[in-house]
Structures are given as structure tokens and as C-alpha cells.
């Protein structure tokens, strides 16, 4: 068996740091073992790996929704023990409240946080909807939206508080490829708007799709399962904004090739192990 290469990238000031994190569930299942991860402010990284490798667990730890059994989760040097209220999360499902219209759904985080008048909330929510291209659908019911539009609404909701960290858990997995490409492009634009000096937030994106991971990210981490850990890291050395042409470039192809191989090895290991 070939040894999997693992070269962690040095980052100067980590915004988020996972140090030797273990997560063992009550059933005895070891979801994560000895996981190290550093995220610089403004970075866009993806996590990819076979099902059950603990990708979602990493996101839940970063969000403060779950706590490690051993090791540390640090955010700007401080241990994350509970949700901070400054993290955006886009789930696999759009999880919109069916009884409320789209703008009410989007302003929910503001309402839960408090300290804003109803008019202010509505204004901010509508602005967030405009950012994802749903301005005309603010007053629609969620069931009137298509799958892709629901995901856009979920993204607007996650960004309405202007979080410093955005976590995305396979958000576009259920969508067709054309819709997915459109959403990928929008996501990059939200992350690093044109003419903006710095990215608007740090993004951690969990996906099953190699192409999606490479298209979006600066770094892609490959995870292996049982127990979940990082087995490879690929830096995608290409500038932003990235457009459709990037999908045909040599950098893109090389990164995808390397990731397929690592992923195949990680999966084979998990089957044998």
C-alpha cells in the first residue's frame, strides 16, 4: 500500500484551530481521531472524504454544536464550547420554516439575536436576499421556491448576520449540476465580492464532489474514515475570480486527479479497515 502524503500548509494567524481532536460517540464509535486543522481568516477550504469519515462532525465542532472528547477547538485563541452566535451554517437541507415567508425566514437569526427593530431586520433581510438574487421572492412562501432557490434563501439566512465563519454541509448535493454551478459561482462572489480587498468570511465547505471542492477552494482536505482523520491536503493554486474556463485549466485537472487518487486510497482503506 502506498503511503498517503500529508503536507499541512503553514498559516500565520489561525482564526480557527483544531488541535489533536478526538470525538467518540456514546456508542463507542470513534468519529474523529487526532484531527489537526488550521484555518486562516478569510480562507476557503473544502473537506472531502468517504461517507462516515466525520466531515459533518468537524463542522459541528467548529460551530460549537458539538464538543470534542479530547483535544481542543480554538477560535481566535479561545476554546469553542458552545455556539458563538457569529457563525453561519448552511445545512444539507434548506431547513426553511414552512409557515413563514422567505424574508421572515432570512431575518430569523437577527430576530433571535435581538437588538434590531422589525423594519431594520426586514431591510437587512431583503438586502441579503438581493445578494443571492432572490429580491423578488422576499414575500413568497418557501414551497413556491425551487430547490436551488431554497438553497439561495438558506445562504442569505446564513449570511444575514455577517458572520466571520461560514460552514456549509454538502449544501448543493441534492441539486442538478447546472443549478449547482450557478450556486457555486454565487457562493464565491459572496465570499470575495469583486473589488473587495479581503474575503467577507472564512468558509469551510463539506462536499462529496471533487470538482466542486477544487472549483471553490484554496485548499482541499481529504479525510479518511474509521476513525476520521485528515489523510491528504491539496492546495489549489489558482487566482480568483474563477470562471467556467477554470474548469478546463491544467491546475484544475491536476488537482482533481490528485484528489481522486487520495480519495480512492482513503475509501479503499476504510473498506479494508
Amino acid at each position: 500500500m502506498r503511503r498517503v502524503q500529508f503536507r499541512p500548509v503553514k498559516t500565520s494567524t489561525p482564526l480557527i484551530e483544531l488541535k489533536a481532536v478526538d470525538r467518540r460517540y456514546e456508542t463507542g464509535l470513534l468519529a474523529l481521531q487526532g484531527l489537526n486543522l488550521q484555518l486562516a481568516a478569510g480562507e476557503f477550504i473544502s473537506l472531502i472524504g468517504p461517507s462516515g469519515c466525520g466531515k459533518s462532525t468537524v463542522l459541528r465542532l467548529l460551530a460549537g454544536l458539538d464538543r470534542p472528547s479530547a483535544g481542543k477547538v480554538l477560535c481566535e485563541g479561545e476554546a469553542v464550547k458552545a455556539p458563538t452566535g457569529h457563525t453561519g451554517f448552511v445545512f444539507q437541507e434548506p431547513t426553511l420554516m414552512p409557515w413563514a415567508n422567505v424574508s421572515t425566514n432570512v431575518e430569523l437569526p437577527l430576530r433571535l439575536r435581538g437588538g434590531m427593530s422589525a423594519e431594520q431586520r426586514d431591510k437587512v433581510a431583503r438586502a441579503a436576499l438581493a445578494q443571492v438574487g432572490l429580491a423578488e421572492f422576499a414575500d413568497a412562501a418557501p414551497k413556491e421556491l425551487s430547490g436551488g432557490m431554497k438553497m439561495r434563501a438558506a445562504m442569505a439566512r446564513a449570511l444575514v448576520t455577517q458572520p466571520s465563519l461560514l460552514l456549509l454541509d454538502e449544501p448543493f448535493a441534492a441539486l442538478d449540476e447546472i443549478t449547482r454551478f450557478g450556486l457555486n459561482e454565487s457562493l464565491l462572489q459572496l465570499w470575495r465580492p469583486e473589488r473587495a480587498k479581503a474575503p467577507a468570511f472564512t468558509a469551510v465547505f463539506v462536499t462529496h464532489s471533487i470538482y466542486e471542492a477544487v472549483y471553490l477552494s484554496q485548499r482541499v482536505l481529504v479525510m479518511g474514515s474509521r476513525p476520521g482523520r485528515v489523510v491528504d491536503e491539496v492546495v489549489v493554486d489558482a487566482p480568483y475570480p474563477r470562471d467556467a474556463n477554470f474548469r478546463g485549466s491544467a491546475v484544475f485537472t491536476a488537482a482533481c486527479g490528485r484528489l481522486s487518487q487520495s480519495l480512492a486510497e482513503a475509501s479503499a482503506e476504510s473498506v479494508l479497515g
Partner: peptide, 11 residues
């Protein structure tokens, strides 16, 4: 999922 969202925003 919504319950998680409410937790995330410390409702």
C-alpha cells in the same frame, strides 16, 4: 435541522 439552527443562534 431548524432546532439546530435555533441552537446555533443561541435562541
Amino acid at each position: 435541522g431548524l432546532a439546530e439552527l435555533f441552537r446555533l443562534y443561541r435562541a
